[in-house]
């Protein structure tokens, strides 16, 4: 048996037989830590890595959201239609309630939970700064929202290709739809994330986000409908700036030709729609970063 007192070359006695081994392996930088946080957040947003119960809602919503696309794809392939019965971009507009509920329900998983249970203190005591933390959480939510929005588009695209529709045309339409969907996801993740970061109670965050997204959209749609019927589309155009969904719908109508009430009629207005969507997302993200800076120093 070796002499424990000679455990090191210097002969210093270091063996306590307590089994505590210091960690000598690599320590990753902030980029890798942030990527890991984004990955975990993305999984958590779908209930993965959490209790079985928390998987029910996100996957139920995802299944509901995919169901029409799968049915359409089945019909396309079996019956052999010569065009898709629903446009790629139009799909998200049709299932906007599901998207809204998904974002509203899952944003608190990423934002409210850490604040409510005080876990945020443990994150802030680690290398990531508060701003990077907020950014990583937002990226997780954005990713989850994109998965939700992009999957049906891909299912429809697959069906279109299987039905031997024109590949170039379909690919171009899908690209436009993906651009639109990214704009929508950016703003939805921003709004829902910001609301959730101000609420430690999940229920409040869910209700507030749904109210903001869906009720605002309802009001805007009503005003647009009246403006269109009264022959004053300009009012409808401007009103469309006040909700992410109406912004999406307006741009979709302008870019894909799908009919929508009072779409932006000029290039200037289209740019304004894009600017508001991007600006809203940036403003929400900035507010999120500020919010977590305050949490860190309070």
């Amino acid at each position: 048996m070796t002499d424990p007192s000679a455990a090191t070359p210097e002969g210093r006695s270091v063996i306590h037989d307590l089994g505590y081994r210091p960690y000598t392996g690599p320590r990753l930088g902030q980029g890798a830590i942030a990527r890991s946080l984004v990955g975990t957040g993305l999984r958590n947003a779908f209930g993965l890595g959490r209790s079985g119960r928390s998987k029910v809602l996100p996957f139920a919503l995802l299944a509901l959201n995919l169901l029409p696309a799968v049915i359409v794809a089945g019909v396309m392939v079996l019956v052999g239609l010569d065009s898709l019965p629903i446009g790629y971009a139009e799909y998200a507009s049709t299932t906007q309630v599901l998207v809204g509920v998904f974002v509203a329900a899952q944003a608190p998983v990423l934002f409210s939970r850490d604040l409510r249970h005080g876990t945020i203190a443990l994150y802030l005591a680690r290398p990531l700064g508060s701003g990077t933390y907020a950014l990583a959480r937002w990226v997780s939510l954005l990713g989850a929202t994109l998965v939700f929005l992009v999957l049906p588009v891909l299912v429809l695209y697959g069906a279109a290709l299987l039905s031997e529709l024109d590949v170039a045309e379909q690919t171009r339409d899908v690209a436009v739809a993906l651009g639109l969907v990214v704009l929508l996801a950016l703003s939805l993740a921003g709004v829902a994330g910001l609301v959730a970061s101000w609420s430690t109670r999940r229920g409040f965050a869910v209700v507030a986000t749904i109210a903001l997204l869906l009720i605002a959209n309802g009001i805007v749609t009503a005003v647009q409908g009246i403006a269109g019927a009264e022959g004053r589309p300009r009012i409808g155009e401007v009103t469309g700036l006040f909700s992410p969904y109406s912004l999406y719908r307006g741009l979709m109508s302008a870019w894909t030709g799908v009919e929508a009430p009072t779409p932006p009629a000029s290039t200037g207005m289209e740019l304004a729609y894009v600017a508001v969507l991007v600006g809203l997302s940036a403003a929400c993200l900035g507010a999120l970063v500020l919010r977590y800076r305050r949490v860190a120093t309070s």
Binding site: R27, I33, S36, T40, L122, Y123, P127
Partner: peptide
């Protein structure tokens, strides 16, 4: 991992 350790470690 949030402190920078790789997953396995």
């Amino acid at each position: 991992m949030m402190s920078g350790l790789p997953r396995l470690a």
